[in-house]
C-alpha cells in the first residue's frame, strides 16, 4: 500500500499535493477526467488547510485491491475545526471570505467524502474508486 505524505504550509504545497494526487491516479490507471477530479478536490481541501488552519498534512494512499483501483486522500489539520459541517457543505457558504465552493465542490468530485472535525483536529477524507476492467 503506497502512501504519499505532503506537509501543507503554503499555497506552493497545494500545487505539490494536487500534482502528487494526479500522478498517483495516472499511475494506477484512472482516466484523465478522474485524474483532474482528484487533483482539483485535493487542491480545494489543501487550500482550506492553508486558509483556515495554517498548516496540515495531506496523505494520499493507494488502497487498490483485485476488484477496483482506489485512492484515499486524507487532509488533516489542527485548526479551529468546522463548527457546523452541514453548513460548510452548503454551496456558497463560507466563513472565511471565500466563495464557499471548496468543500461542496470537492465532495461532488469523488465517490466517498467524510469529515471528522473537533476544535484542534479536522480530517477530511475523500475516496476515488473505479472497478477494474
Amino acid at each position: 500500500m503506497e502512501a504519499k505524505k505532503i506537509e501543507i504550509k503554503n499555497s506552493r504545497d497545494v500545487v505539490t499535493a494536487r500534482k502528487m494526487g494526479r500522478k498517483m491516479a495516472l499511475e494506477l490507471g484512472f482516466g484523465s477526467a478522474d485524474q483532474t477530479r482528484l487533483a482539483t478536490a485535493i487542491s480545494e481541501l489543501t487550500r482550506n488547510v492553508v486558509q483556515y488552519a495554517g498548516t496540515g498534512l495531506c496523505t494520499i494512499t493507494d488502497q487498490s485491491n483485485k476488484n477496483e483501483i482506489k485512492i484515499v486522500t486524507a487532509v488533516e489539520d489542527a485548526g479551529p475545526g468546522i463548527s457546523d459541517i452541514d453548513k460548510a457543505l452548503e454551496q456558497g457558504y463560507s466563513s472565511g471570505g471565500g466563495m464557499g465552493a471548496g468543500l461542496p465542490g470537492a465532495k461532488r468530485l469523488v465517490q466517498e467524502f467524510g469529515i471528522d472535525s473537533v476544535p484542534g483536529n479536522t480530517v477530511v477524507t475523500i475516496t476515488l474508486r473505479r472497478k477494474k476492467i
Partner: peptide, 10 residues
C-alpha cells in the same frame, strides 16, 4: 492548465 479549481476559476 490541467487543473482549474474554484479559486482559480473565480
Amino acid at each position: 492548465l490541467d487543473v482549474v479549481d474554484s479559486f482559480l476559476a473565480r
